[in-house]
Protein backbone atom coordinates (compact mmCIF):
# COMPACT_ATOMS: atom_id res chain seq x y z
CA UNK A 1 0.00 0.00 0.00
CA UNK A 2 1.31 3.40 -0.90
CA UNK A 3 1.85 5.62 2.07
CA UNK A 4 1.52 9.33 2.07
CA UNK A 5 3.87 10.48 4.84
CA UNK A 6 3.44 14.02 5.99
CA UNK A 7 5.92 15.23 8.57
CA UNK A 8 4.00 17.19 11.15
CA UNK A 9 6.01 20.36 11.65
CA UNK A 10 3.47 21.88 13.99
CA UNK A 11 3.88 18.95 16.39
CA UNK A 12 7.64 19.16 16.08
CA UNK A 13 7.68 22.87 16.73
CA UNK A 14 5.45 22.82 19.79
CA UNK A 15 6.65 19.51 21.14
CA UNK A 16 9.87 21.25 22.20
CA UNK A 17 9.54 22.81 25.58
CA UNK A 18 9.44 26.57 25.55
CA UNK A 19 12.83 26.68 27.23
CA UNK A 20 14.60 25.04 24.29
CA UNK A 21 16.71 27.75 22.70
CA UNK A 22 18.51 25.59 20.13
CA UNK A 23 17.79 22.17 18.75
CA UNK A 24 19.76 20.57 15.98
CA UNK A 25 20.11 17.15 14.44
CA UNK A 26 22.57 16.51 11.69
CA UNK A 27 26.26 16.53 10.84
CA UNK A 28 28.46 18.58 13.18
CA UNK A 29 30.37 20.18 10.35
CA UNK A 30 31.77 23.70 9.99
CA UNK A 31 28.44 25.22 9.00
CA UNK A 32 26.58 23.84 11.98
CA UNK A 33 29.37 24.77 14.40
CA UNK A 34 29.43 28.30 13.05
CA UNK A 35 25.69 28.81 13.20
CA UNK A 36 25.16 27.42 16.70
CA UNK A 37 28.39 28.91 18.05
CA UNK A 38 27.42 32.39 16.87
CA UNK A 39 23.97 31.99 18.33
CA UNK A 40 25.45 31.22 21.75
CA UNK A 41 27.80 34.20 21.43
CA UNK A 42 24.69 36.29 20.92
CA UNK A 43 23.43 35.26 24.35
CA UNK A 44 26.56 36.49 26.04
CA UNK A 45 25.56 40.08 26.75
CA UNK A 46 22.74 38.78 28.94
CA UNK A 47 24.83 36.51 31.11
CA UNK A 48 28.54 36.64 30.18
CA UNK A 49 29.99 34.10 32.63
CA UNK A 50 27.37 31.38 32.11
CA UNK A 51 27.15 31.92 28.35
CA UNK A 52 30.89 31.57 27.90
CA UNK A 53 30.70 28.28 29.74
CA UNK A 54 27.80 27.20 27.51
CA UNK A 55 29.95 28.04 24.50
CA UNK A 56 32.95 26.05 25.78
CA UNK A 57 30.75 23.07 26.65
CA UNK A 58 29.11 23.26 23.23
CA UNK A 59 32.47 23.27 21.39
CA UNK A 60 33.81 20.23 23.27
CA UNK A 61 30.60 18.23 22.86
CA UNK A 62 30.18 19.19 19.20
CA UNK A 63 33.79 18.32 18.34
CA UNK A 64 33.34 14.97 20.09
CA UNK A 65 30.35 14.22 17.88
CA UNK A 66 32.16 15.45 14.75
CA UNK A 67 35.11 13.15 15.44
CA UNK A 68 33.75 10.16 17.29
CA UNK A 69 30.09 9.63 16.40
CA UNK A 70 29.58 6.17 14.92
CA UNK A 71 27.15 7.75 12.47
CA UNK A 72 28.76 9.77 9.68
CA UNK A 73 27.37 12.14 7.13
CA UNK A 74 27.91 10.22 3.91
CA UNK A 75 27.51 11.96 0.57
CA UNK A 76 28.37 9.55 -2.22
CA UNK A 77 31.85 8.30 -1.39
CA UNK A 78 32.68 11.22 0.85
CA UNK A 79 32.56 10.49 4.56
CA UNK A 80 31.90 13.74 6.36
CA UNK A 81 31.49 14.89 9.95
CA UNK A 82 29.84 12.79 12.65
CA UNK A 83 26.09 13.07 13.06
CA UNK A 84 24.31 13.70 16.34
CA UNK A 85 21.69 15.73 18.15
CA UNK A 86 22.02 18.81 20.31
CA UNK A 87 19.58 20.69 22.47
CA UNK A 88 20.32 23.74 24.61
CA UNK A 89 17.72 24.41 27.29
CA UNK A 90 17.43 27.70 29.17
CA UNK A 91 15.92 27.05 32.61
CA UNK A 92 15.44 29.86 35.13
CA UNK A 93 18.49 28.88 37.21
CA UNK A 94 20.69 27.06 34.73
CA UNK A 95 21.43 26.15 31.14
CA UNK A 96 21.53 22.54 30.07
CA UNK A 97 23.50 21.43 27.02
CA UNK A 98 22.39 17.98 25.88
CA UNK A 99 23.97 16.00 23.08
CA UNK A 100 23.49 12.48 21.81
CA UNK A 101 25.10 10.33 19.19
CA UNK A 102 25.63 6.73 18.17
CA UNK A 103 28.67 5.10 19.69
CA UNK A 104 30.24 1.69 18.96
CA UNK A 105 29.50 -0.69 21.83
CA UNK A 106 33.23 -1.46 22.02
CA UNK A 107 33.99 2.17 22.87
CA UNK A 108 31.23 2.49 25.43
CA UNK A 109 32.92 0.94 28.49
CA UNK A 110 35.87 3.35 28.76
CA UNK A 111 33.60 6.38 28.27
CA UNK A 112 31.21 5.27 31.04
CA UNK A 113 34.12 4.44 33.38
CA UNK A 114 35.64 7.86 32.74
CA UNK A 115 32.37 9.66 33.46
CA UNK A 116 31.84 7.66 36.65
CA UNK A 117 35.34 8.49 37.85
CA UNK A 118 34.83 12.18 37.01
CA UNK A 119 31.61 12.27 39.02
CA UNK A 120 33.41 11.11 42.17
CA UNK A 121 35.88 14.02 42.05
CA UNK A 122 35.67 17.61 43.28
CA UNK A 123 37.12 20.58 41.38
CA UNK A 124 40.66 20.11 42.72
CA UNK A 125 40.53 16.37 42.03
CA UNK A 126 39.38 17.05 38.46
CA UNK A 127 42.18 19.54 37.87
CA UNK A 128 44.71 17.06 39.21
CA UNK A 129 43.38 14.31 36.92
CA UNK A 130 43.46 16.69 33.95
CA UNK A 131 47.08 17.65 34.67
CA UNK A 132 48.08 13.98 34.93
CA UNK A 133 46.36 13.09 31.65
CA UNK A 134 47.83 16.09 29.84
CA UNK A 135 51.29 15.22 31.09
CA UNK A 136 51.23 11.62 29.90
CA UNK A 137 49.56 12.41 26.60
CA UNK A 138 50.58 10.76 23.37
CA UNK A 139 51.92 13.27 20.86
CA UNK A 140 50.57 11.34 17.88
CA UNK A 141 46.97 11.36 19.01
CA UNK A 142 44.82 14.23 17.76
CA UNK A 143 42.74 14.74 20.87
CA UNK A 144 43.96 15.34 24.39
CA UNK A 145 41.63 12.84 26.12
CA UNK A 146 40.68 15.49 28.64
CA UNK A 147 37.43 16.61 26.99
CA UNK A 148 35.12 14.93 29.51
CA UNK A 149 37.18 16.15 32.47
CA UNK A 150 37.14 19.67 31.06
CA UNK A 151 33.34 19.52 30.70
CA UNK A 152 33.02 18.78 34.41
CA UNK A 153 35.51 21.51 35.33
CA UNK A 154 33.88 24.13 33.11
CA UNK A 155 30.33 23.33 34.15
CA UNK A 156 31.08 22.75 37.84
CA UNK A 157 28.46 20.00 37.82
CA UNK A 158 28.47 16.20 37.46
CA UNK A 159 28.10 14.71 33.98
CA UNK A 160 24.68 13.16 33.53
CA UNK A 161 24.95 10.31 31.03
CA UNK A 162 22.46 7.84 29.62
CA UNK A 163 22.94 4.87 27.32
CA UNK A 164 20.23 3.39 25.15
CA UNK A 165 21.25 0.11 23.47
CA UNK A 166 20.35 0.12 19.77
CA UNK A 167 21.70 -3.18 18.41
CA UNK A 168 24.68 -5.54 18.65
CA UNK A 169 27.04 -2.91 17.27
CA UNK A 170 26.06 0.39 18.75
CA UNK A 171 24.22 2.36 21.38
CA UNK A 172 22.90 5.89 21.64
CA UNK A 173 24.91 7.90 24.13
CA UNK A 174 23.37 10.98 25.73
CA UNK A 175 25.25 13.47 27.88
CA UNK A 176 23.66 16.35 29.78
CA UNK A 177 25.81 19.16 31.08
CA UNK A 178 24.30 21.66 33.47
CA UNK A 179 25.67 25.20 33.78
CA UNK A 180 24.44 27.28 36.69
CA UNK A 181 23.48 30.89 36.02
Amino acid sequence: MEQNNKFNLVDYHFRSQQEVVVSYKGPFDKGAMNMIGNYIRGLISMNPQASKKVFKVFIELAQNIAQYSAEKNIIGEYVGAGVGSLVIVDYPDYFQVVTGNLIDNGDLGPVIDKCELINTLDKEGLRKLKREQLKQNDYERAGADIGLIQLAITSDNPLDIEVKPIDQNCSFFTIRVKINK
Binding site: L134, A144, I146
Partner: peptide, 11 residues
Protein backbone atom coordinates in the same frame (compact mmCIF):
# COMPACT_ATOMS: atom_id res chain seq x y z
CA UNK B 1 39.55 30.62 24.52
CA UNK B 2 41.11 27.31 23.52
CA UNK B 3 39.63 23.83 23.30
CA UNK B 4 41.13 20.73 24.89
CA UNK B 5 43.03 19.56 21.81
CA UNK B 6 44.66 22.99 21.72
CA UNK B 7 45.55 22.72 25.46
CA UNK B 8 47.66 19.72 24.67
CA UNK B 9 49.57 21.55 21.90
CA UNK B 10 49.98 24.70 24.02
CA UNK B 11 51.59 22.51 26.68
Amino acid sequence: YFNTSSSKRIL
